[in-house]
């Protein structure tokens, strides 16, 4: 009973939020709707006893990423619906619709496939899989909470992928800093090259106007 209730409320929040993101005319409202969806997903995670993922969902996505969105929206002053209707690409609507439908089809297929796996072949396949994984593995993971299970796979099994991802993020941050300094600084020490000068000449009137 409780399960159905929780799923209904969280699922409704997710759906309403998702539709709201698409339909809101005001970017700030759209961002808030996104937060609602993220919270709904977090509740669903808790219902699956993935507490840590739920907390991270709220801290990282709702607490950092959407806040960043809001920062950009507020500081650039693009919180007006009129500016959004401009820059649409020629076939954007049709392409977006096609991708959306494709995504929905894949999702439906996945749910159906998982459903069949669990319903049809329940006892045999799952038990076989459990036996194949071995008792030692099961014993090793059974006492772990989800936090330590995640930590174990991040920092031992997938440590290279994890470190590479953090390297990628650092490169992205450094790149952003350099690009940001180049376009706003008048004669920053970073760009002695001709290309930098050209870009400055193009960007200069805009930035100065923005500063005023």
């Amino acid at each position: 009973m409780v399960e159905v209730l929780v799923f209904a409320v969280a699922g409704a929040a997710c759906l309403v939020g998702a539709i709201g993101v698409v339909l809101s005319r005001n970017p700030v409202h759209a961002a808030l709707m996104l937060v609602m969806t993220l919270f709904g997903v977090a509740v669903l995670f808790v219902a699956q006893e993935a507490h840590f993922i739920a907390a991270v969902q709220v801290i990282v996505y709702a607490g950092a990423i959407v806040v960043l969105f809001l920062f950009v929206i507020m500081l650039l002053g693009v919180d007006r619906a009129a500016e959004l209707s401009l820059g649409a690409l020629p076939a954007q609507r049709w392409t977006a619709a096609a991708f959306g439908l494709g995504g929905a089809a894949v999702l439906v297929w996945m749910v159906a496939a998982v459903d069949r796996l669990y319903k049809g072949a329940h006892s045999y396949e799952l038990e076989a899989a459990g036996a194949a994984a071995g008792d030692a593995d099961a014993a090793a993971t059974s006492y772990l909470t989800d936090v330590s299970a995640i930590a174990r796979s991040l920092f031992s099994d997938y440590v290279y992928a994890f470190e590479l991802t953090s390297l990628l993020l650092i490169v992205a941050v450094i790149g952003t800093v350099i690009l940001a300094r180049r376009s706003s600084g008048d004669d920053g020490p970073l760009d002695g090259t001709h290309g930098g000068d050209l870009q400055q000449a193009e960007g200069a009137p805009g930035t100065q106007e923005a500063r005023r």
């Binding site: 808030l32 507490h51 801290i59 709702a62 809001l70 919180d79 989800d146």
Partner: peptide
């Protein structure tokens, strides 16, 4: 089970209150 992470989650959500109020 996430205990103290809830504090961090709430303090990061609290930013919305302040931010949206100002905007």
């Amino acid at each position: 089970p996430v205990g103290i992470l809830l504090l961090l989650a709430m303090s990061s959500v609290a930013v919305y209150g302040v931010m949206l109020a100002g905007w």
